[in-house]
Design a protein around this nucleic acid. Structure first.
Length: 854
RNA sequence: GGGCGAUUAGCUCAGGGGGAGAGCACUUCCUUGACACGGAAGGGGUCAGCAGUUCAAAUCUGCUAUCGCCCACCA
């Protein structure tokens, strides 16, 4: 509990961050009170930052938005559950641990409890077991966490630092495996051997959500497929001639009269002389190229559709390493020259094979005309460097509506049930769900991650039976099937006929991240906490991971709890560099936040962040930070003035004493403040922290410029009405600013109040209701006239303290009526020493006669 | 190809049927008793364009243009 200190002579922002961060920590100001029930709690599903690198200014931006909401809800009386997670699961962390310690994860190795990494990573990576790797990860995360936490605390995030979680730790592994096993038991998870998008460098399957298109230069090559039985050749266009050996058919639209006579007939592939059928399918576009395409297994996702729907055979040419397979595919009947052709290409990368095959086509005269250069979109893994291939493999999926209209409708309904801020972000969710074309592929052929908690029986012939996975009891989780054995089995049965083998794969990181609300809430591990916080209230996140994080979290909660994981989603925009370019490490334009926080102050940094509207991309702007700093300083100084006239003997509960406010000017000012409270509250309730700040700031500057000047004389003279009004306004304004500028408001609060402002009540318009009946026009009228007087002095290039010998106020009758009760204050603030004449006129104008210069 | 958003002062942006606004920058002035890490004032805009609804449009509707993003089976 803080002691009242009174205002210092020279208030300063210096050192406020450390001072108050330490105090909040010591007082446990933001500790979650878990005696509160669900309806009293406001729970936030905080995005766990990836601990592989460093935080950048974009994190500061969006986490500040969330923190303003958290502080508002806390002041409103909700017990805020505001945990922090650390995302240490996934490729970025895997790479960081590899590079940092010079090790490599090899799950076939046994755990070595005595392993110590080298002091400096050697040139050769040391292979270690998965458990050893995870332990190193835990160790590194602790170091990263400390840096992150220091920044968050300096920024003033009001999280409860005793409620943290990680995404690769034991709890996360247990929750991920438990959720998967339950999906499996209910039939929501299934495995399938099918063509899958595949990254040839990472050598793993990639899900639809991890795809991105990149524009790449390419070319259309026109190829001649020879006719059979005396029929003419058919010319097709393709961008991937290297896939000719994988060609299984040609396809044209059923209504295309050019090719209708050939349907069911065969043609011969160029170079290889393999016979393939000509078929009809509505997906073939008569307008594209020559209107007829070659189907390869597999060149793109359309090939997969054709292959499946036309029930074609498989002729695999490209392997999982992106190179042409060493052995030729099954050509079918009679293709004498095919093997020889293929031998020359085997082992080449797709790119090399294309170059060679184009040469050969040209030599053989089977290339029609010159290649037509184009640029076209090609699918990439978002982290990958080479185009994706499609290979057939056995993978685990979770049903997400990609292949089932009913399931899809259920998730669209969840999207409509969720409150989106801003609301138009819902359309991104909807277009994603509507465009799904496959289920959620959750298995990854990686070593670091949460393993699938499964084994498969090996039959007497040594064949693995994938259709009857062996699952562990939930109580055993988390397990690693490569080192743990099925219940009742022994290690010596591993890999043996009649024994078992482990599922070698790990789960996609989103399979864990999709459980962050459950993880943070202690699902199954802490049922008492879970009941108090789940489903949560708010998911704050960036828009670009709606299709991944947001959607997958909805999927998991829908299946496990038949509910949304939270009622509201607040979607933040991007932070752009000062030139309004997207920040990225490769461009080298990433702004790190600690330096500007130290330079301008955390409140100033937060001011900049909170000025960015919900969902709107915002540029890094030092100008806004300077404005924020100026505001913070103004709050210090205006408070110092107000407390100076309120008096040092003010009791700590002095403040809302509406009865003491009797003067019309004071009552009028407080009427405006009441309207502000309503406005700011409404804005915050709809997650519009920016509007709340904007309206509060607007009133505050006017308060400083006009009200303080008008009331100064009377306040110095000891007017009780002025003292009470200033106390009331200061008290209210500080609390309105507290969510945005927690440090400076807490500092000022400590001068005259007990306890933390962040545990004080949010202002209620009801507290100011005595002023609802006040004439709200008095204060604006007085301020307007005062501005006219200042203008006259400014235009005369005279000091503001110049005496006014005589003034004539011309104004509409209403304005003059409003002005009347505050005329004394206007005289005082305007230094009018002589007569004031009031004249009715159409528009406000003030003529003044200034005292002669000395 | 479909969708979402944006277009307002030199810059960054707010506003959302009836006065064209803020901050920064610029110009001028003021070292007044809370504040020189200040303060007062000023200049500056065909609210992207066209059409419509309306007594009245920056604001609502439609179309167009430009920019950004999302989605799509892009041979």
């Amino acid at each position: 509990m803080s002691e009242r200190t009174g205002a210092p002579d020279k208030p300063s922002l210096d050192g406020l961050e450390d001072k108050w961060a330490d105090r909040w920590d010591a007082d446990r100001t933001f500790a979650f009170d878990r005696s509160k029930t669900r309806d009293e709690v406001f729970a936030i599903d905080t995005p766990p930052p990836t601990v592989s690198g460093s935080l950048h200014v974009g994190h500061v931006f969006s986490y500040t938005h969330t923190d303003t909401i958290a502080r508002f809800q806390r002041m409103r009386g909700r017990e805020v559950f505001y945990p922090m997670g650390w995302d240490d699961n996934g490729v970025p962390t895997e790479r960081r641990v590899q590079n940092y310690f010079g090790v490599r994860c090899d799950p076939s190795l046994p755990y070595d409890p005595g392993f110590v990494p080298p002091e400096k990573p050697g040139k050769q990576e040391i292979p270690i077991s998965r458990q050893n790797f995870v332990e190193l990860c835990d160790r590194l995360v602790v170091e990263d966490e400390q840096k992150f936490e220091e920044l968050w605390r300096t920024l003033g995030l009001s999280v409860d630092w005793s409620t943290t979680y990680t995404t690769i730790g034991e709890r996360a592994r247990r929750a991920s495996q438990r959720a998967f096993l339950r999906n499996l038991a209910r039939g929501e998870a299934y495995q399938s051997e099918a063509p899958t998008l595949w990254d040839v460098d990472f050598r793993m399957a990639v899900s639809q959500a991890e795809l991105e298109d990149r524009e790449l230069p390419g070319a259309y090559y026109s190829l001649r497929f020879g006719g059979t039985d005396g029929e003419a050749a058919i010319v097709i266009e393709t961008t991937r001639p290297e896939l000719i050996p994988a060609c299984v058919a040609l396809v044209a639209h059923p209504d295309d009269e050019r090719y209708a006579p050939r349907f069911g007939h065969e043609v011969v592939t160029p170079l290889f002389g393999v016979r393939v059928p000509v078929l009809a399918h509505p997906l073939a576009d008569p307008e594209k190229g020559s209107g007829i395409a070659m189907i390869c297994t597999f060149g793109d996702t359309t090939d997969v559709v054709w292959w499946r729907e036309l029930q074609l055979s498989t002729r695999t040419a490209i392997g999982r390493d992106g190179r042409l397979l060493p052995e030729p595919p099954d050509w079918g009947p009679a293709a004498p020259e095919a093997d020889a052709r293929y031998a020359e290409l085997a082992g080449k990368t797709a790119k090399q094979a294309q170059a060679r095959i184009v040469e050969l086509l040209a030599e053989q005269g089977e290339l029609v005309g010159a290649p037509k250069p184009i640029t076209h979109p090609v699918k990439f893994y978002e982290r990958g460097d080479r185009p994706l291939e499609i290979v057939s493999s056995r993978q685990w999926y979770i049903r997400n509506g990609g292949r089932d209209a009913e399931v899809r409708e259920a998730f669209l309904a969840r999207g409509r049930e969720l409150h989106w801020h801003p609301s138009h972000m819902r359309s991104r969710y909807e277009s994603w769900v509507e465009g799904l074309n496959s289920d959620w592929l959750i298995s990854r052929q990686r070593y670091f991650g949460v393993p699938f908690p499964l084994w498969y029986p090996v039959d007497a012939d040594g064949e693995v039976d994938y259709d009857h996975p062996i699952v562990p009891e939930e109580a055993r989780l988390p397990i690693d099937p490569t080192s743990d054995v099925p219940t009742g089995a022994t290690e010596d049965q591993r890999g043996k006929a009649g024994g078992f083998v482990a599922d070698p794969d790990v789960m996609d990181t989103w399979a864990t991240s999709s459980l962050t609300p459950e993880l943070a809430a202690g699902w199954e591990d802490d049922p008492d906490l879970f009941a108090r916080v789940f489903p949560m209230d708010l998911r704050p996140q960036a828009f670009e991971i709606i299709r991944t994080w947001l959607f997958s979290t909805v999927v998991r909660a829908h299946y496990e709890f038949d509910s949304l994981p939270w009622s509201d989603a607040a979607i933040s925009g991007w932070v752009l560099d000062p030139e309004r370019k997207k920040m990225s490490k490769s461009k080298g334009n990433v702004v790190t936040p600690m330096e500007p926080i130290r330079q301008f102050g955390a409140d100033a940094m937060r001011y900049w962040a909170a000025s960015g509207r919900p969902g709107v991309d915002t540029a890094v702007d030092e100008g806004q930070m300077k404005v924020g700093r100026r505001l913070a300083i103004k709050i210090l100084n205006a408070s110092k003035f107000a407390l100076g006239v309120i008096g040092d003997d003010v009791p700590s509960d002095f403040g809302m004493q509406p009865d003491a406010v009797t003067e019309p000017l004071d009552r009028s000012m407080l009427a405006g403040l009441a309207a502000l409270v309503t406005n700011a509250t409404t804005s915050f309730e709809s997650y519009d922290y920016a509007r709340a700040l904007d309206s509060t700031e607007r009133l505050f500057w006017g308060f400083c410029d006009d009200y303080v000047e008008l009331v100064k004389g009377r306040a110095y003279a000891g007017s009780d009405s002025a003292r009470a009004a200033l106390a009331c306004a200061l008290d209210t304004l500080l609390r309105l600013f507290a969510p945005h500028m927690p440090f400076v408001t807490e500092e000022v609060w400590s001068w005259w109040r007990a306890g933390s402002i962040h545990r004080a009540d949010w202002p209620r318009a009801d507290d100011l209701s005595p002023f609802a009946s006040a004439d709200a026009t008095v204060y604006p009228a007085a301020a307007a006239v005062l501005r006219e007087i200042r203008k006259a002095k400014s235009e005369a290039k005279r000091s503001m303290r110049t005496d006014v010998v005589r003034a004539t106020v011309r104004a509409p009758a209403e304005l003059l009526r409003s002005l009347a009760p505050a005329l004394a204050e206007v005289r005082d603030a305007g230094r009018i020493v002589g007569e004031v004449e009031l004249v009715e006129a159409g528009e406000l104008a003030v003529d003044v006669t200034l005292a002669a210069p000395e």
